[in-house]
Design a protein around this nucleic acid. Structure first.
Lengths: 125, 125
DNA sequence: ATCATATATATGTAGTATACATATATAGTT
DNA sequence: AACTATATATGTATACTACATATATATGAT
């Protein structure tokens, strides 16, 4: 449970769940929040975010309700569920592993680049 | 250049290039080396590795040659090229960004989990 | 009133990546 | 000759990403 949902690449779901835990939100604003924490080059596509949110709702990890209060177009507000917290725990384990792998990669890349003079050349050249 | 090849998910290419920089190798042995540095749950499929190596060769990032010396079946030995080093530099930038995003994710997840008592419950409960 | 723009939620689709299954050939062992 | 291990692949369904387009409502300008 929780972990059998975790598959490679689906980190849009992970970030969505985490930010919805911090605060329930609607798609477009969540999009700004996600892209606010992601670096350039990893920015999320709004269409894919809407799809990810619907998928999360289908599998019960979030619930949504229309919000017609206030001004502007109606917004669908998403909030995380108990199942969503389970899924999120699975994501944290998955992402922790990936970060370890990336640490290994970057450590070894730097070591090789330095021994090859590449980094020295770019830093001091 | 270098960076326009970097696309999400293709980290098999990144790890292959890095390990081939450390040492030229053939597919099956490279497979063992990659899985040796990757944690459980991120293990690489051998079929996908062979495909990744052919793709790398098509775009000029590695070169291969048959090795019929020694005992056993003939092996196709791959070695990284100058273009491969360029591609690898792009990967290191991409992976560095992803690690930052993962750092943010894990930091915030832990903070939320602690404030929610989840981690405390699992550690001391 | 009407036109343009912004907000908000979607769908269409091509290319790529991943997981899991299967195929083919050669070499070594009994 | 049969069996097993090594080595290199291909087949394929599903999923993810990027980029384009569609639809509806609300707001502001003229």
């Amino acid at each position: 449970m929780s972990n059998d949902r975790v598959r490679p690449g689906r980190h849009l779901a992970a970030f969505s769940l985490l930010l919805l835990w911090e605060m329930p939100d609607h798609g477009l604003h969540l999009h700004r929040r996600i892209n606010g924490v992601l670096p350039d080059g990893l920015q999320v596509d709004i269409g894919n975010l809407y799809r990810a949110l619907r998928d999360l709702e289908v599998r019960g990890s979030v619930q949504s309700a229309w919000d017609t209060e206030g001004s502007g177009s109606a917004r669908r507000i998403y909030r995380i569920t108990a199942d969503g917290h389970d899924e999120l725990r699975g994501w944290s384990e998955d992402i922790s592993k990936r970060r370890s792998a990336f640490d290994w990669f970057l450590g070894h890349w730097q070591a090789l680049a330095e021994s090859d003079g590449n980094v020295e050349a770019r830093l001091h050249g």
